[in-house]
């Protein structure tokens, strides 16, 4: 009785460049699908490994989009939207973790029983998310590069495709954005002040 699966392909084809309205229409579907896939990935044979966001983003594309109807530009747009969705998924999760932590009813960190266990660093992620918004206000394009690389796990070549830039430009944007964000976030606790 749910609606038939929304035609994500149609939405993607309607997505003209970075049109915010089209991104808004596409995002929820991609968000839902990525979240479900992330869950499957974590429970499947890759259990114990961290989430492979790049694989997820590409799998979501294959799953949601009818390949015969879209061009590579559409694929690039999709990867861009999926990176944004991935960012929201992880940030929302970090917010929940952070709330729980402040509520005091959960352990500060949980450990996997295997070698890859690690502490969940929600607050650092949230700080980065905010810094990224500040950067976006100044320099939208480098901020997008960060979103796609750090949250979406895309390669420089793919980012270049999404943004219609050359790879060296993406690399330069990344270098500048990384430097700016590092400065904005302040030195990490265990690194000497630069």
């Amino acid at each position: 009785m749910a609606d038939p699966a929304p035609d994500v392909t149609h939405l993607l084809l309607a997505l003209d460049g970075d049109d915010p309205a089209a991104v808004d229409a596409l995002l929820p579907h991609v968000y839902t699908e990525l979240q479900a896939m992330a869950r499957r990935q974590l429970r499947g044979e890759r259990a114990g490994h961290t989430l492979d966001t790049a694989a997820l983003v590409h799998e979501a594309y294959l799953k949601l989009i009818r390949q015969d109807r879209v061009s590579w530009q559409n694929r690039a747009h999709f990867l861009g939207v999926a990176s944004l969705a991935m960012r929201r998924i992880l940030v929302n999760y970090a917010k929940r973790r952070s709330r729980v932590k402040r509520g005091g009813d959960a352990p500060l960190a949980t450990f996997d029983d295997g070698a890859v266990g690690r502490v969940t660093r929600s607050d650092e992620l949230l700080a980065l998310d905010e810094a990224l918004d500040r950067l976006a206000a100044r320099a939208p394009r480098p901020a997008r590069v960060v979103e796609m690389r750090f949250f979406g796990g895309l390669t420089h070549a793919e980012i270049a495709e999404v943004l219609g830039l050359s790879e060296p430009t993406v690399r330069r944007d990344w270098q500048a954005a990384r430097a700016w964000l590092s400065a904005d976030l302040g030195p990490p606790a265990d690194a000497p002040a630069g």
Binding site: Q35, Y93, T110, L128, A179, A191
Partner: peptide, 29 residues
């Protein structure tokens, strides 16, 4: 920025998903 450029081991050198304990994330998602 030049200072930031020299900083090693920022969060940014990995991927966002690496910041989470997978079991934790699984539960959340």
């Amino acid at each position: 920025m030049l200072g930031g450029h020299r900083t090693r081991d920022t969060l940014l050198d990995g991927f966002a998903a690496d910041l989470f304990d997978p079991a934790d994330l699984d539960q959340a998602l």
